[in-house]
């Protein structure tokens, strides 16, 4: 048994917290866990990719090979597209469809692809999954910083490798109690957004 997850986003979106909640929860459940992050310039608006690998046997590479991920969580559509080749043929994606423009696109040097272009690129690879607007939902809940918690909740709706409640508890143990109520609501909201599409 092995389970590979990658979380693609932009520095500051909180994908490292989300990946750590899953990794620590998996360790509690007795899995072998390996993870890594490509961040470097993440604090400065760069692309961030977190890898979380769980198995009941030895894991060698900290990096998920292309075509091997069971789930790709895209916190941002362009970042999801950038790493979509890591997803396996039978894997599932969840993409937050709220774009974060790039500096070069703002300047007119690059063109940020349209939603249609991104979706057809993904569809051309025969991959399937879910699209939600987690950023919008987080704003509705009162704080855009809840986006990662919504995505984490959404993840638990499609992956039963770890119990949803255990992941939520692990997340809560990592954050200030004053945010717990909002985090619980955001987590549930993420689950509901996927449940509505199942």
């Amino acid at each position: 048994m092995k389970f590979d997850l990658v979380i693609a986003g932009v520095g500051g979106q909180g994908n490292i917290v989300a990946s750590q909640a899953i990794a620590q929860c998996a360790m509690d459940a007795g899995f072998t866990v390996v993870n890594t992050e490509t961040k470097g310039a993440a604090q400065r608006g760069g692309s961030v990719l977190s890898h979380v690998r769980l198995a009941d046997r030895e894991i060698y590479s900290p990096v998920v090979p292309h075509g091997q991920a069971d789930v790709l969580l895209g916190f941002e559509p362009l970042e999801a597209l950038r790493y979509i080749n890591i997803l396996s043929k039978g894997g599932k994606y969840i993409i937050n469809m709220a774009p974060v423009p790039t500096i070069l696109a703002n300047m007119g040097i690059d063109t940020y692809p349209s939603e249609q272009e991104i979706l057809s690129e993904v569809a051309a690879r025969g991959l399937t999954g879910y699209r939600i607007n987690a950023t919008q939902a987080a704003k509705e809940l009162g704080n855009v910083l809840l986006t990662n918690v919504i995505m984490l909740g959404a993840f638990t709706a499609i992956a039963d490798i770890l119990p949803a409640e255990a992941i939520l508890h692990k997340l809560l143990s990592m954050v200030d109690p004053k945010f717990h109520e909002a985090d619980i609501r955001a987590f549930r909201r993420g689950r509901e957004m996927i449940a509505a599409q199942l």
Partner: peptide, 10 residues
């Protein structure tokens, strides 16, 4: 090529 996120000052 997928539009890059270049590093910049905060």
């Amino acid at each position: 090529y997928i539009p890059a996120r270049t590093r910049t000052q905060c």
